[in-house]
Simulated assay, not measured.
Amino acid sequence: MIIGYARTSTVEQQAGFEAQFRDLQAHGCDKIFSEQVSSVNSQRLQLEQAMDFAREGDVLVVTRLDRLARSIANLTQIVASLENKKVGLRILDMSIDTNTPTGRLLINLVGSIAQFEREIMLARQREGIAKAKDKGLFKGRAPTARRKSDFVMQLIADGKKPTDIAKELNIGRSSVYRIIAEHDNQSTAG
């Protein structure tokens, strides 16, 4: 069985989503799993279901590598999981098919090159940050939860519980408690 997997990061990417469906159907996919979630911050339930659904001899097909894996470690994990089930992987835009010796070689080469590029990019980023710090220009990323302090305190005033606030604002529960404690400290100090 040929199983397709389509993903976009947001629902606004409808044209890309439709293009993936078109390409997967044209490739002869018998079943297509799809979702519109970020690969970075979200659990990809449909990908997990597609991989669970696949049986020995099946092939999982994606249109592009970035629709499947978020990192080389993630790619390696997915490929290993599929190999353990004796399920092949096809990446259409790169003409990679892990059912062939050349495909297995290419997936490893592509993964290794991607890992190398990422490490080079991170090294340059660290160098740039170090230079910016030396010049006093780098302050770091503003804490995400602290930017929502006013919202947290408003929701507390409205009687909401910290766990519910954390879910609503998509921040950690400990961040909610930290914001409350900082607010209480400022109130008693002032």
Rank of each mutant, 00 (worst) to 15 (best):
I32N: 10
V87T: 11
R90I: 05
L109S: 12
I113Q: 12
I91R: 01
F138G: 05
I129Y: 07
L68R: 08
E48A: 13
S112T: 14
Q43D: 03
K133P: 07
R55Y: 14
A114V: 05
S34D: 15
K31Q: 11
V79E: 02
Q115L: 08
R44M: 05
S39A: 11
L75G: 06
Q43A: 07
D134M: 14
K31L: 12
S34N: 10
L92D: 09
H27K: 03
G111R: 09
A130V: 05
L75E: 12
A123M: 08
A80L: 03
D97E: 00
I113H: 08
L47W: 04
S81I: 14
T63K: 01
D134W: 09
G28D: 00
R90G: 02
D93C: 02
D66P: 00
L45M: 15
Q43W: 09
V59W: 05
L65T: 11
L82C: 06
K86W: 14
L122P: 00
L106D: 13
I120D: 06
K85V: 06
L65A: 06
R124M: 03
F138K: 11
V79L: 02
I72G: 06
S39M: 09
K85E: 13
D30N: 10
K31R: 15
L106Y: 04
Q77A: 13
L106W: 08
H27I: 01
